[in-house]
């Protein structure tokens, strides 16, 4: 895949946590195409979080290149990487995604505050946020509620809305459903997929739960990505 069609590309990446000789990550080649949805399966401790940190640019690889949306993120200064992340990547975490004291609206709009280009793509941020909330099945009056007062399932939907607003090209979700029960999980994923597809975003989801695979274009094992298995993708 060349950089025109791939939104994310890691090649020859090696990373060692400073001061922790035992653990490192070695990714010869890993690519994501535009608009595809990929499930990355791995047990805890397999380096998923490190991989996400590399993709988001909060850590930089010791060797190799990480390219997001055609840009080698190592070429950016730390400050520019932060802004680049805000512009290009929508993030959803396992839980505790939101600022509990802020309103749902402020939580959704937060990434736009640090991403002027992404902000520019949204004609009316408040209306867009409201529409996303409705599309994700949140009650009408939830938008002005304090995020901390919502149920865990509702909070995850708010986190999804926050990742989706301004249609970033890449959405990274780290075990977004692990705090939800099975029924809520399915609904949440359906809604997330529909919205990601609508905005044309690539979806990379990391999980240890193989049962989720039915939803995705592609399922990749973490062990295939890392050096030991020399995955061919």
């Amino acid at each position: 895949m060349d950089s025109d069609t791939s939104i994310l590309s890691l090649s020859g990446v090696r990373y060692h946590w400073p001061g922790r000789a035992s653990f490192g990550l070695d990714i010869p080649d890993f690519q994501l195409a535009r608009s595809e949805s990929v499930l990355l399966l791995g047990e805890s401790g397999s380096g998923k979080s490190t991989l996400l940190s590399l993709i988001c640019g909060t850590i930089t690889a010791d060797q190799g290149t990480v390219t997001v949306a055609g840009r080698d993120i190592a070429s950016l200064t730390a400050g520019k990487r932060d802004r680049f992340r805000a512009e290009h990547i929508g993030l959803i975490f396992q839980q505790f995604n939101l600022l509990p004291y802020a309103s749902v609206l402020d939580n959704i709009l937060l990434p736009l505050r640090f991403a002027p280009l992404r902000r520019g793509r949204v004609a009316s941020p408040r209306d867009t946020a409201r529409r996303l909330c409705l599309d994700l099945g949140l009650p009408e009056d939830a938008i002005l509620a304090q995020a901390g007062t919502l149920s865990v399932g509702q909070q995850q939907r708010v986190a999804a809305a926050r990742a989706l607003i301004g249609a970033p090209p890449l959405i990274v979700a780290d075990e977004p459903t692990s705090a939800l029960d099975a029924a809520t999980q399915a609904t949440f994923l359906d809604l997330l997929f529909a919205q990601a597809r609508a905005s044309g975003s690539t979806l990379l989801m990391v999980s240890h739960d193989a049962r989720l695979n039915v939803h995705f274009d592609r399922v990749v094992q973490m062990s295939d990505v890392t050096q030991s298995a020399k995955a061919t993708l």
């Binding site: 988001c56 909060t58 730390a78 400050g79 932060d82 802004r83 992340r85 805000a86 512009e87 993030l91 975490f93 505790f96 995604n97 939101l98 600022l99 937060l110 990434p111 505050r113 640090f114 991403a115 926050r162």
Partner: peptide
């Protein structure tokens, strides 16, 4: 959370 949303340190 702030950092993930793109806030600089």
């Amino acid at each position: 959370i702030f950092r993930a949303m793109g806030a600089r340190p």
